[in-house]
Design a binder for these strands. Sequence first.
DNA 1: TTAAAAAGTGCAAACGTTTACAACTATTCT
DNA 2: AGAATAGTTGTAAACGTTTGCACTTTTTAA
Lengths: 333, 333
Amino acid sequence: MRKQDITIYDVAREAKVSMATVSRVVNGNTNVRKDTRDRVMKVINRLHYQPNAVAQGLASKRTTTVGLIVPDLTNLYFAELSKGIDDIALLYKYNIIITSIENRLMREDQAIQGLLNKQVDGVIYMSDTLPEEAVEAFKRTDTPVVLAGTKDSHSEFPSVAIDYKKADTEALNLLYNDGRKNLALVIGNPDTVVNVQNRIPAYKKFMADHNLGEGHIYSNVKDHSDGYNLLSQLDHDGVDGVIVTRDVTAVGILNSAIDAGKKVPEELEIITASATQIASVVRPALTAIRQPLYDIGAVAMRMLTKLMNNEEVPETQIELPYEILKKQSTTNE
Amino acid sequence: MRKQDITIYDVAREAKVSMATVSRVVNGNTNVRKDTRDRVMKVINRLHYQPNAVAQGLASKRTTTVGLIVPDLTNLYFAELSKGIDDIALLYKYNIIITSIENRLMREDQAIQGLLNKQVDGVIYMSDTLPEEAVEAFKRTDTPVVLAGTKDSHSEFPSVAIDYKKADTEALNLLYNDGRKNLALVIGNPDTVVNVQNRIPAYKKFMADHNLGEGHIYSNVKDHSDGYNLLSQLDHDGVDGVIVTRDVTAVGILNSAIDAGKKVPEELEIITASATQIASVVRPALTAIRQPLYDIGAVAMRMLTKLMNNEEVPETQIELPYEILKKQSTTNE
DNA sequence: TTAAAAAGTGCAAACGTTTACAACTATTCT
DNA sequence: AGAATAGTTGTAAACGTTTGCACTTTTTAA
């Protein structure tokens, strides 16, 4: 098939050793005499021998490949996570098979099964929702899995994320201290673990603790135009401070406000709960919970390397520090 | 290794056929009697048999995997290209191994070699620069390659892109017709094929054709902050209309102008030569050459599937239509 | 100097499929 | 009915590595 198809066998013949020895030098096994190693290396270089990773995978049962399951590549939240993953993967010489699952044709469990069939050594799962079939698919295998930037409801799987509850509470407090009393929460899918177990309870608790009434939770507000269209509702409900999970959604609200002549932050304060490039590039720039997305990805991948090597991983539920980045969409005292 | 490790052999035994027959039904070969096919399928379902893709890859020499080489996942230009690629790949049941090469540790030719070692059936290359070693690496193999959103200098490789020269000329013309005479071009790497062979010549020709003098080409302006810092230079040079290759760079210039109290588009018109989400989300929204990024990716991947199947591909240098999207960063007549 | 231990090497059997090819069975045609 | 043909199935050799085991050589220790 390949124009140049040098196998380990060719190298063995030329170097007058067995293929086992060639394999050993290729894999850096120390049990090879210096001069035979040199001899083999010389042949390898001369013939431009490159091991066939598929054959290696079959024989060794390790493919040095990890699977990524991600909802949407063009969502910078996931792109930035992926970058952290990718850099660490490179460091440890793993390749990445990426599977995006927003597409109707691809269900979570199919994505997982596809990766397992490819014999990936591990999987990083980034979707904010982990359906039962996906859990089942993972459980049917020994392949380690790490969740990045999300959590599962029972903490069955290792995960790397932030303390969403604490972060949201802190953000709400910032609005509250700015004198805002009619606080709202804008989320996408209301059924995700993070929303159900963290954001919504944190919001409700905060509202209750401060006697602010029921408040307003707006669900299924997922993109720029959803955010744009939400403004009239916010106006109607008299909201003066809002936390928005996705930053492009927040930008939608922001732009809608600008276009309607409504002042941000004077009349409406906006905080986004996940800051990507976009949050800092719009004007007024968005105050945000800055999640360390790159680091979350990197730490998740690092943890996965340990799991793949059966190394000890003392803590599998990791929460990384976040910070509240005050910008122009909230009042600067 | 796997908890559950059912092989084709187990299925064969249970169904009382040979592994060859099982293989045939798995691969949809028609030369199997209906009732044996049913019998085998029943066993496959009962045992939850899933073929080992690595073994398939070794035996068949096809991995149904394609490699993507991309500079930066968090650059939406590439993310949107990738999405088009991904969707078509899913349709044709290919997996995607993604390799990002911005990292210092990973050179283009190493990335390519890595993918070839994994026996990918094809490669899509998206970097705007194609070093000589990368060309060599590609030439050493029969694995088909398609360039997406970029071109090589000698049109040696199949590619899918737009007519950059025409698009830029049209954009310059828009500025010119708005009465702007001091036009500038802002690019990133000045050595890319697209810049050297298309954008720069188009700019120079336009300036010459309209007797606008030498003009100003600003190179190595690559991100938001580069753009932000460039504004003073633009001011100094009296530029009143500018084409910027990357949209976040354009946004940098835009934000710098806003912060400096300079009016856009009244005092400075800005057009970006590649529009992602970001161009439409900032205010004033950026007038842009809208490249059909998703489609470029999709068409590139579709072409690759044909090349991988040794099908006839009549035209391998494809240019897709673009449009000039007039927004708020240029005057609306 | 010699026995024991360590280091270096080769043999051959995996790994889990695909796929010529051969062989057998059922069908069609005359 | 018999021959030719088409359809169905099995056998076994790939595919290109890794790796346990046995064997040989070298080193170490007494």
